[in-house]
Design a protein around this nucleic acid. Structure first.
Lengths: 263, 263
DNA sequence: CAGTGGTCTAGACCACTGG
DNA sequence: CAGTGGTCTAGACCACTGC
């Protein structure tokens, strides 16, 4: 029998839509709250199912169902015999979870083996469009990062530019982010964000278009003006559907492609 | 206590990798087999959980877990109070599940409101590359369909071409598929496939690239040669990971975009 | 009202990890 | 070995549908 302190659903005829929510959803909300509050850090283990069941005064099966959903949401990772861990962008499998670029002739590997080259990193007031998408007030500070991803060439030549990224971040969340900090970091950018700024990317939405290379962008990607490029506009969210990154990538898709799975 | 006829896992030290598979996975495999054999048709209800539990001599909870997985795989659809139904491409929500095209300024709606215009439908021997991807033997028959998708213009003008599709199907599976049949059909193409040819698309993999409009394609899409287009190469699978459709779409992404969600 | 899926519990046992 | 997540069962009750 569930104790009090949870929403009881037999609250009588008060509202037309009682908004019934099962126990395990309430537990899930509590767990997400703990993640959001930083109670358990990325990579660390959360308490065992038995412990959580005791803490919330519910059965283990109910905790289990809550954790199951959070695992399919990629918030948690279950490891049999070891425990349940807060998901992170640090592990091999999930390191480039949001980068769908793959070499054309490849054994299906994701785009891990690319070099990075930082072009720019500066703070400024967010332009209107950026501010709108990131839910910032007009004129609030933002950080802009520009960088290249390059594919190493087999035959000793120059690395070939493949991706030109233009990234916008809320200045308030990324206080100490500088070019030096970015240059020094070995590893995926999202790993830096969660390790140094406690900002964890949970999900994202992308809009893809084909565009023609123009001006400076063409030069940076070392292609003639007019070359067709894949434009990928990504808006990333953290806990609570809060937008925390706007990224516009230009992909040179000769030799690489954007891979998507439909279910 | 589970009866015999299921794989018992305490089979003794025979193999190094005993390939342990839980009961509910075995039930799931049986259910998928029934779907594959056409025992229950798309849109129809499958037996209730209680009935299935009795049939397979397992508990309802075990059946439930098998069905849960099939529901997240989009093979089945659960409806509380009514039953569990074989998924279909007929319903409003899942009708254009694989078409990620969306109008730029829109309330997030999928690309439903497009007109179709059939360009071509003919049978021929599958070209080498098509045969390879569809797992056909060299020279086996195939059906090629070409068509346009057009967005109706607000101001009474001509509908604007948005997508040029080039579709290849195994001839053996689509025996009676003709231009007349396609012209007469009102509704999504995948609905025709499952209704008339018992071929249900389960999942697909897409490769996206930016390309330049050339020759005939540019004319059909009513764009100048060299216009950047989004090339979408899709390989679709039915039960048992059998490839059954190869589709190459050219998307004109001015006014529309390809929308993707990353988790 | 009966029949369906959905939630919750309690307990037993299995598979895996690490000390 | 103890501790973790994973499976399976049996039963009670709830929410929703349609007759």
């Amino acid at each position: 029998m569930p104790e009090a302190s949870f929403t009881q659903n037999a609250t009588g005829p008060v509202e037309a839509a009682p908004a019934f929510s099962p126990l395990y959803q309430q537990i899930k909300a509590l767990l997400v709250g703990s993640l959001r509050a930083g109670e358990w850090q990325p990579g660390q283990a959360i308490p065992s199912e038995v412990d959580l069941a005791a803490r919330y005064k519910v059965s283990q099966g109910t905790v289990r169902k809550a954790i199951d959903e959070m695992a399919t949401d990629n918030l948690l990772v279950r490891r049999q015999g070891k425990g349940t861990f807060v998901a992170t962008h640090a592990e091999a499998g999930t390191q480039y979870r949001f980068l769908r670029l793959a070499p054309d002739a490849s054994p299906m590997g994701a785009g891990g083996g690319l070099q990075r080259r930082l072009l720019d990193c500066r703070r400024m007031r967010a332009p209107a469009e950026v501010a709108r998408l990131l839910a910032l007030k007009a004129g609030e500070p933002a950080v802009q990062v520009r960088r290249l991803l390059l594919a190493p060439l087999a035959e000793g030549g120059e690395p070939a530019p493949v991706v030109l990224d233009d990234i916008w971040l809320p200045g308030a969340l990324f206080k100490g982010l500088t070019a030096e900090r970015l240059m020094a970091w070995r590893g995926a950018m999202y790993r830096l964000f969660e390790a140094e700024f406690s900002v964890r990317m949970i999900r994202a939405v992308e809009k893809l278009r084909a565009v023609a290379a123009a001006g400076e962008d063409a030069g940076l990607l070392a292609v003639p003006e007019g070359t067709p490029l894949l434009s990928v506009e990504r808006l990333s969210f953290t806990y609570g559907d809060q937008p925390v990154e706007l990224r516009r990538g230009l992909y040179h898709t000769q030799g690489h492609h954007y891979r998507n799975e439909l279910n």
